[in-house]
Design a protein around this nucleic acid. Structure first.
Length: 711
RNA sequence: GGGCGCUUAGCUCAGUUGGUUAGAGCGACUCGUUUACACCGAGUAGGUCGGGGGUUCGAAUCCCUCAGCGCCCACCA
């Protein structure tokens, strides 16, 4: 007879058990016996190196650890590879903010080398925090393969990738219109721009008294950079197409406005005429290109008016706008002012307003260029094909539609960032001439100061972590990875970029299945945020209720890809479940008279027969549901069985049976059922199951971590 | 403007290709201090599955339509 404590104590158990697992070496597939059952691999979406664990991470870790533990118990060589992301802009601005707060200096005061030294030091020191927090969640990650997006090996991968793409003509360079984040002082990709609906004033006016028709704009100050007016080729202003107007004085500057006819103009909207500002609008730039129009930049990177010679130069945007409007009023050129709803572009990261402006020495990934080595297909086509051919399956399936829709509207990817912390773009320039090399090509060549978009390096993650560009054993064995699990919010940022990179650089998909989970919300369906004060700290929850309880609560009753709601009550309920299970084991061990479990106990009573049938059904259900990524169904099935079939019914039925002549047989059924449920529950609640398993009277016992999945 | 999705018990949500009395967790109510567990047990109440129409022997599930909510993408000056 073995006597367990009356209540399960996660605080006492968890760190001890985790240490046991870690020391066993079984997180590393090299130490797993080769059972000829194949392999399974997955990368952890690398958390920001300076971050701390939030519920989003907790969901990711829970789901992935369930998949990994299941596969490992199936006997596969199972690799789950950890790492951290340098998160260029996020980390840099975090450090700079602290620097300003503590020392009153910004990054420029320190200079690039000194500033980077600080960031590096902070990142290194900070990294342990998030890694230990992942351990706290019970993650069975192979720590021996830990990677960092900015470590030496990954740097080599990034440079190699860039060089190969550049040589293949997939990366071009020059002066282009970019999304400028004035606040963050960097360019950002189209994906990093968010739109916010606000009310603004639409001004309808003429450039001058003798201009034949009015135009409308919410940004009159940008009109200083106008070079043309576009009208519909068969609209009401078509007679003016081809005419040029010299405006001698528009708010103190000279404009040459050519009237062009373009299909892109909606003749019914507004005045039917659009002022064309090629330097500050992508749509206008496209029109300008079609008609061979010049471009005139009038807003600089600090959001000030420039190069107009109008007396507005050096004013900021709002001041300039007021002055332009005032001038229009004074000149009697303003015909209408109306309040309209329109979208303003903001940088996702900094929240700053995005200005479209031209910038030199920008690098872009061309998604529309045919690639010789890939049967003349473009990156866009390769990305599309990976999913249409079924080589990659996205779960839930509806996200495949999102993915295709995104690809349809995809433009070239600007990978240059004016951020210091990150992979420096290995390129040099002499005037407009450019050379891609790591070391200086010689006299007169200036280095490109920019760094890569952080997603450029994380796009390589499935293979850069496995040793690419070297042809390592790991790469051969574990790539393509089996599953990529992450939140649906980074499907485009990350998942799509990984498909792009792998398709071109390796000629294969980076993973076979993409499994997307939803966002975690609070009880009021609100997104959790610090400012709302509704944040549930996963670490506080594990402290209070145990990691197993948190894990179970996070997947219970939440379908894949659907936003889920978590409340402290739910976590508490799962703590009760852990304790219930503990007491089931306690009861069984308490009544054990030295009987060992057998794999095929005989049913002698109706109760025996029922529970064994139910056990067989739940075993099948849990396996099938995990295979199909229906973790909530699997969790529900095992929960239901343990609490309501096994405990409520069979344990009660067993009490009289333990007193009669079938005593030993009943003990065997109890032990067998316990043993099987321990295994079935282990991926979900690894700590309590391992702890109970350690108490079972079994000879030649392994860690539950590497026990064989019931079949 | 285009696309995707949601609306099921008081609350939060499951419900896998249409199939017997629609489920769970939490909450509510009644009863129960029998040594596995009060972090518990036994039981009860509570839903015309958003409205309407259709297909079918049969619809929460498929189709149409209306209403409300959410997300993604594009962006018109």
């Amino acid at each position: 007879m073995i006597e367990l404590p009356k209540a399960y104590n996660p605080q006492e158990t968890e760190s001890r058990i985790y240490k046991l697992w870690e020391e066993s070496g079984f997180f590393n597939p090299d130490n797993l016996p080769d059972k000829g059952k194949g392999r399974f691999s997955m990368v952890l979406p690398p958390p920001n190196v300076t971050g701390t664990l939030h519920l989003g991470h907790a969901v990711t870790v829970t789901i992935e650890d369930i998949l990994v533990r299941y596969q490992r118990m199936l006997g596969k060589k199972t690799l789950w590879l950890p790492g951290t992301d340098h998160a260029a802009i996020a980390t840099e601005s975090k450090i700079e903010k602290e620097l300003i707060k503590k020392e009153g200096k910004n990054r420029n005061d320190l200079g690039r080398p000194a500033f980077l030294k600080r960031v590096d030091a902070f990142a290194k020191e900070s990294q342990q925090t998030i890694l230990n927090q992942l351990r706290k969640m019970g993650a069975s990650l192979d720590w021996s393969r830990l990677a960092f997006t900015l470590d030496e090996k990954r740097q080599r991968a990034v440079y190699t990738a860039f060089k190969r793409m550049y040589d293949a003509g997939l990366i071009y360079h020059g002066e282009y219109l970019i999304n400028w984040d004035k606040k963050g002082q960097t360019t950002v990709s189209d994906e990093e721009v968010e739109y916010e609906t606000t009310k603004g004033t639409l001004y309808t006016f003429r450039y001058s008294k003798n201009f034949p028709f009015p135009i409308a704009s919410t940004r009159p100050e940008t009109k200083l950079g106008d070079v043309a007016v576009a009208v519909h080729p068969s609209g009401k202003w078509k007679e003016y197409i081809g005419k040029k107007f010299e405006i001698d004085n528009f708010v103190g500057t000279k404009l040459t406005i050519e009237v062009v006819g373009d299909e892109a103009v909606d003749p019914e909207f507004g005045t039917g005429a659009v002022g064309i500002t090629p330097a500050h609008s992508k749509v206008d730039a496209e029109i300008a290109q079609r008609h061979n129009l010049p471009s005139k930049q009038v807003i600089n990177e600090f959001g000030k008016i420039m190069h107009t010679g109008s007396g507005l130069d050096t004013l900021n945007i709002q001041e300039a706008r007021d002055r332009v409007v005032e001038w229009l009023k004074n000149e009697n050129l303003l015909e209408k002012e109306e309040i309209i709803e329109h979208n303003i572009a903001k940088a996702q990261r900094s929240g700053g307003i995005i200005e479209i402006l031209p910038k030199r020495h920008q690098f872009f990934v061309n998604v529309n260029k045919p690639i010789v080595d890939r049967d003349g297909k473009t990156l866009r086509e390769l990305m599309c094909e990976a999913v249409t051919t079924g080589k990659i399956k996205i779960i839930p399936e509806r996200f495949e539609k999102n993915y295709f829709h995104w690809i349809d509207t995809l433009r070239d990817w600007n990978i240059s960032r004016q951020v210091w912390y990150g992979h420096r773009i290995p390129a040099w320039c002499k005037g407009e001439e450019i050379k891609v090399e790591q070391e200086s090509p010689g006299e007169g060549w200036e280095p490109i100061e920019d760094t890569f978009d952080t997603w450029f390096s994380s796009g390589l993650w499935t293979f850069s972590t496995l040793g690419w560009p070297d042809e390592t054993m790991d790469l051969k064995t574990y790539h393509p990875t089996d599953v990529l699990e992450t939140g649906y919010d980074i499907l485009f940022f990350w998942v799509a970029r990984m498909i792009l990179m792998s398709s071109f650089l390796l000629g294969e998909v980076p993973f076979h299945t993409v499994y997307l989970h939803g966002l975690v919300r609070d009880e009021n369906r609100k997104k959790m945020s610090k400012s709302l004060g509704n944040v549930i700290d996963p670490l506080v929850m594990t402290e209070k209720y145990g990691t197993d309880a948190l894990r179970m609560a996070l997947i219970f009753n939440t379908a894949s890809g659907t936003d889920s709601v978590i409340s402290e009550e739910k976590i508490k309920g799962m703590k009760h479940f852990a304790n219930k299970f503990w007491n089931i084991a306690r009861f069984i061990l308490m009544n054990n008279t030295g009987v060992m479990p057998s794999s095929k106990p005989k049913a002698r009573t109706d109760a025996d027969r029922v529970i064994l049938e139910q056990l067989s059904a739940v075993r099948e259900s849990v396996s099938r549901n995990i295979e199909q990524f229906q973790l909530h169904e699997a969790a529900q099935a095992i929960y239901q069985f343990i609490w309501h079939d096994f405990a409520d019914v069979y344990l009660e039925a067993s009490k009289p049976q333990l007193k009669n002549e079938n005593k030993e047989n009943t003990e065997q059924i109890l032990l067998h059922t316990l043993c099987t449920t321990l295994k079935l529950l282990h991926p979900f609640m690894p700590f309590v199951t391992e702890e109970i398993y350690a108490q079972l009277p079994i000879t030649d016992k392994k860690l539950l971590l590497v026990e064989e999945w019931p079949r």
